[in-house]
Structure formats: structure tokens, C-alpha cells
Simulated assay, not measured.
Amino acid sequence: MQVLQMQMEVRADPAEVGRARRWARSRLAGSGIGVDEPLAETLILLISELVTNAVVHTGCPAVLRMLLPGVAGPAGAAAGGVGTVRVEVADISARAPRRRRAQGDETGGRGLELVDGLADRWGWHREGAGKRIWCEVDRGEPCWSGAFEPQHAATNRA
């Protein structure tokens, strides 16, 4: 199986988050993942959170990379199927990502909680003077399935 790798450089500017989302949408569409598919929506949200963390919390430029499984088709697009989609954001800050729990009306502090809830796996490691944070979503399963269901649905019935 071939893995498609795509990357973009992200400047240390919060406006780059929107540019990263647009870039990712266009690359996903070109890889055979429809922009209105649950997988695409999940990946766009994950990318938004990871890029936001990089540019807002470190003040450093970053590199966004997507790795998509698939076999190149006749037009160079990946054929659909199962596999793992990986998103990585590398920056030059030695500052480790810090998971917070936002309280009440706080406007920040939910990014890594969202990543933890949406990704099948995530983590980070030091790389040179900086770090790389990554997340993976297993393809072939509905990413949003049950996302808004109570954990103990049976106890919530009348």
C-alpha cells in the first residue's frame, strides 16, 4: 500500500489556522476523501486544533503534514479503503504540549481534549530542538459515530 504524504509550512500567525484548514480540505478532496465525509470533518477539526496549538502557544512557525493510506489510482488519487490517516505538526519550540481542562466559560484549554476524543491515537515526541505532535484516525470507521451519545445511554432513558 502506498502512503501519500503532503505538507505545508505554517507561519507563526493565528490566521494560518484557516489557511491550514483550506489546504487540508483541498488535499483530502484530491486524495479521494470527500470533504463532506465524517472522516474529512474529523481530520479538519484535528488539524485546526493542532495548528492552533502550534502557532498560538509557541509563537513559532510549524510544519503540518498529512499521511494518507491508499493506492494511487489512474488520476494519482488514493483509492478509498481502510488504513490509518496520520496528521503531524512539528515546531521548533521545546515547550511540551500541556493538556488542560477548561472550566465553564473559558474560551481556551479544550484543544487536546478534542484531539483525545476524536483521534484513535495521539502523542508527541521531541525532535531536535523542537517537537512533533501527531494524531491518527483509523479509516473505514465512522469517526463521529456515537460522539454525542451519552456514555451510559441505558441509564438516560425514561
Rank of each mutant, 00 (worst) to 15 (best):
L68Q: 00
P97C: 09
S31L: 00
I47D: 01
A40R: 00
Q5I: 15
A12D: 13
H152S: 09
V56T: 11
R110N: 15
R99G: 13
L43V: 04
G30C: 06
A90V: 13
G18R: 11
A29H: 06
S48A: 13
A90W: 13
V17H: 10
A96K: 08
T107V: 13
E37G: 04
T155H: 15
Q2V: 05
G128H: 15
Q2Y: 02
A119C: 02
A94Q: 03
A158V: 14
D91E: 08
V51T: 04
V87T: 07
A94E: 06
V137F: 04
R86T: 11
V17A: 03
L45I: 06
D105N: 14
N53M: 11
T155W: 10
D36Y: 07
W122P: 14
V56M: 05
N53W: 09
V35A: 14
V10G: 03
R65V: 12
R110D: 09
E37S: 12
D13V: 05
D138F: 10
V51N: 02
G18I: 02
S48C: 06
P97W: 09
S48M: 08
Q103T: 13
V3F: 03
W124C: 09
A12G: 11
E16I: 01
C135K: 05
N53R: 04
T107I: 11
V85A: 06
Q7S: 11
E49H: 09
L46G: 05
V137M: 03
L43H: 02
T58D: 07
V56W: 05
E88K: 01
Q7R: 12
D36A: 13
R11T: 09
G80D: 01
P38H: 05
A147L: 12
G130Q: 08
P150S: 15
R121D: 15
V85N: 00
E16T: 02
C135F: 08
V63S: 09
L28W: 00
